[in-house]
Design a protein around this nucleic acid. Structure first.
Lengths: 204, 204, 204, 204
DNA sequence: AATGAATGAGCTTTCATTCAT
DNA sequence: GATGAATGAAAGCTCATTCAT
């Protein structure tokens, strides 16, 4: 569907692997694990089906690689630095309608469902815990580890997941086409509500 | 798994149909569309596989019926009446760990994914719009239909969806086992943040 | 290859199962486990491939059923009764060229190779031990259980297995086309050599 | 598994070919034709898979070479010389439990099954006829070529084949672990029974 | 109304083989 | 001479669906 770009890309293992990985990521993100067939992934990548076994061993291996190669940073180059405004900004961009054009959908969707394999579950949990930690780090308050604070950060993660899921599954308007600008205000309000007033502007 | 209650329930169309529907709802909710097999649904219901065709025509027909039969009320018997505290209360109960024991998971999960069929999409959209409307109705402010207010309500719906999805997919703690009491505070904060301060207690 | 007899034999579970079993037995006997494909077995039986799953669950299930349904009696209706001449007679008939026309080969061939599955191994071992016991029973001597006597009986079983294998694999002449009459003399000599002179003609 | 001896054995065609051949012989003997995969053979030999094509052209080519390179001598360095005792001795050693440690199983097992290819069949037949001839030569009687005598020699070959097959396939005890000493007596009896009393010790 | 036999299509996986380098 | 990338065909298995009682 995508990369079958005429020239058969012969004899380039790295490129072939990469093409398969990207095709898989797109399909897994949009269609889920069961909805994705290896034949179609191979066709998208423009290579032979059996190469999936060669490079990823099995469908599960391909899925794990796809999950592992998914972007995890919430915000800028080095994650989200420490203040509330930047967190709101990062989230509103991440959750806007036209983010992730190369996936077709928000990549977090790949983290959901399938279940069963313990290793996959661990990967998914780790990814989401990563998001939670980034939110806490970016919330501009000390690392006081009280459980309610953790719960509140997880609720913010849940909000993000829910936005991605709803957009992908049913496309409610106006959420479906919301721009970063439209989301920034409401998200900032939610962040403040969940994480409390920003701790003193430490830096003057 | 459930209703194979010995006596073969011969010749009771309505009961048979109902048994199939409930079995299907449970499986679709927990395992998704692809993960649910008609044989198992029929076995759960204790009836013959071919009756699914008779009553629902096809797997998709069964799925549609399951979606259509899913509870839509956010709160009490007639939805959520008009004040902020009750909305927070209803949501915290709905999203707590042990709600919906008869489904195994939060029923909203059935509304997600599969896609493709236009009719199914319409059903799902309608269900989620229903939630949005109930939230707006329950938010204690006038029905001023500005789009941002709608977006903010949808974000609250997204939060709920996200909680259900995360709990089902990966089970982050402490969110996974959160009780209604643990959720009430944070949710109240989010509600207030998204829907603004409650309009003056109209009734004096 | 065999039973695709025009009329599709619709709606007769027992007959369908039987047809599959016979087709499987023929193929397993001639071609071994790996050499037998379920598609061909189904084609031979003139039924759909998926029915193998229905009736035997898997290839291994089919194989087990085929082994279990294989004849085990060395001789007459009730095994080999007690004297040397009848044992020689039974063996020479069993190992002659044109025995087992309905299998294509000697059914003992199905008992060989594949390995791996413990349950299958047990079935095979039991079948061959059955033969050994029948030989000892038919040897006209007391049941003195000394190990060498057991070893000698097993060598006789080995001779039978070897004849079947050689005939099937390479077809050495004159062994390949040997008639019961041609085999009786040599086999009688071997039996006597292995099991010792017949114990006193009891009914002297 | 065997020859991956560190240094990549570069540029030594004969050694590479030999390593492949030995690895193939081991696998074919233990696992049969279908159970042997070329990738594993190549891995055992520590060489690249494609070299099998270079040296043996195909899986069948490799199999033919493996068959052709299998030991055919029944007894000592120059086959079995002429007397009955030595034949029994040679056979009992050949058929004992721990003969052929370098194959894992008795090499005659490679001669069985697969079928189909005429050339392979000819090789196998020739090998078994070789055994038959050695037996007749070693039986201490004149080369009177009557067919029954041939049949009797073939039955002895069949006994050997059967022992190897049973040991490999199911492992009946006590045959499975029989030592040369345990086999010598019974085999001597069978030899005498099949080939008749030794003709006068011609050589004084 | 209800049952269970039968089917066709499609999936993942496995291999021998071929092709560039 | 040797390597590793790439391919095509076929296998076992699963499932929604249809057909005959």
């Amino acid at each position: 569907m995508a990369d079958a770009s005429g020239a058969p890309r012969r004899r380039d293992a790295a490129a072939t692997r990469q093409a398969l990985l990207e095709a898989a990521r797109r399909r897994f993100t949009r269609l889920g694990y069961d909805g994705t067939t290896l034949r179609e992934v191979a066709a998208d990548a423009g290579v032979n089906l059996a190469l999936i076994k060669r490079y990823f061993d099995s469908k599960e291996g391909l899925f794990k690689a796809a999950i592992a190669s998914t972007p995890r940073a919430l915000g800028g180059p080095a994650g989200v630095p420490g203040d509330r405004a930047r967190l709101a900004d990062a989230l509103s961009r991440q959750l806007s309608a036209d983010a992730w054009p190369e996936f077709g959908e928000h990549p977090v969707l790949m983290l959901l469902r399938v279940s069963g394999d313990e290793q996959v579950d661990a990967l998914r949990r780790a990814a989401l815990q990563d998001f939670t930690r980034q939110i806490l780090d970016g919330s501009g308050t000390g690392p006081e580890k009280d459980p309610e604070r953790l719960l509140r950060a997880e609720l913010l993660v849940a909000l993000g997941v829910g936005v991605a899921v709803i957009r992908s599954a049913v496309g409610l308007q106006p959420l479906r086409d919301a721009t970063p600008d439209a989301l920034r205000g409401p998200l900032r309000d939610v962040i403040d509500a969940l994480l409390g007033p920003e701790s003193e502007p430490v830096e003057g």
